[in-house]
Computed example of a mutant assay.
Amino acid sequence: MYNREFKNSFLAEYAASTRRVDEVRFKKASIFEEKAQKDLYDFTFEEAEEFLYSLNAKSLRSIQNHISRLRIYLDFARQQRRSINEINYYKYLGKKENATKYLRWKSCF
């Protein structure tokens, strides 16, 4: 997991079941974080979109859940003054008309 200590401080606030799901998501993200040499909370909009496509979500509910948790993580990083992002673009991506574009995309990585 990229930036494990910070992610663990985020995960500490949640129940074990939520932590497990987030840990899987963070593990998937670590490939993109290593490539970009930065944490998810500092991803550009384009980098965040690339990650969302790679999740290959098959339902609207699934991708909206990913987006929601990423929004919460970025908010946490911003509150801790760790993120360089001035806005949380995940707030807008979770809407049905925006989230559907990330469904069933086949990653080529």
Rank of each mutant, 00 (worst) to 15 (best):
A12E: 12
A12M: 08
A12F: 09
A12L: 11
E13D: 12
E13S: 15
Y14C: 03
Y14I: 02
Y14P: 03
Y14K: 14
A15Y: 07
A16V: 07
A16L: 09
A16N: 06
S17V: 04
S17M: 01
S17N: 14
T18G: 03
R19M: 05
R19G: 01
R19F: 00
R19C: 08
R20E: 10
R20K: 13
R20G: 01
R20I: 01
V21H: 06
V21K: 10
D22W: 06
D22S: 03
D22L: 13
E23Q: 15
E23Y: 06
V24Y: 12
R25D: 12
R25L: 15
R25I: 10
R25G: 04
R25C: 09
F26E: 03
F26N: 02
F26S: 01
K27M: 08
K27E: 11
K27C: 03
K27I: 04
K28Q: 11
A29Y: 08
A29S: 15
S30A: 11
S30E: 15
S30G: 01
I31R: 14
I31S: 06
F32W: 11
F32I: 01
F32E: 02
E33T: 01
E33K: 04
E33M: 14
E33Q: 15
E34F: 10
K35R: 12
K35G: 01
K35T: 05
K35F: 08
A36R: 15
A36Q: 11
Q37H: 12
Q37W: 03
Q37S: 12
Q37L: 07
Q37D: 12
Q37Y: 04
K38E: 13
D39L: 01
D39Q: 03
D39P: 02
L40T: 05
L40Y: 10
L40V: 14
Y41T: 02
D42G: 01
D42T: 00
D42H: 03
D42V: 00
D42L: 00
F43L: 05
F43G: 04
T44M: 07
T44L: 09
T44W: 09
E46H: 13
E47T: 04
E47K: 10
E47R: 10
A48D: 04
A48I: 02
E50K: 13
F51T: 04
F51S: 00
F51W: 07
L52N: 04
L52A: 02
L52M: 05
L52D: 04
S54T: 05
S54R: 13
S54G: 10
L55T: 09
L55D: 05
L55Y: 05
L55I: 05
L55W: 02
L55M: 12
N56G: 08
N56E: 14
N56L: 04
K58M: 10
K58C: 11
K58H: 14
S59D: 09
S59C: 09
L60D: 07
L60I: 14
L60W: 05
R61P: 07
R61C: 12
S62I: 07
S62M: 12
S62P: 00
I63Y: 03
Q64N: 08
N65P: 00
N65H: 13
H66W: 10
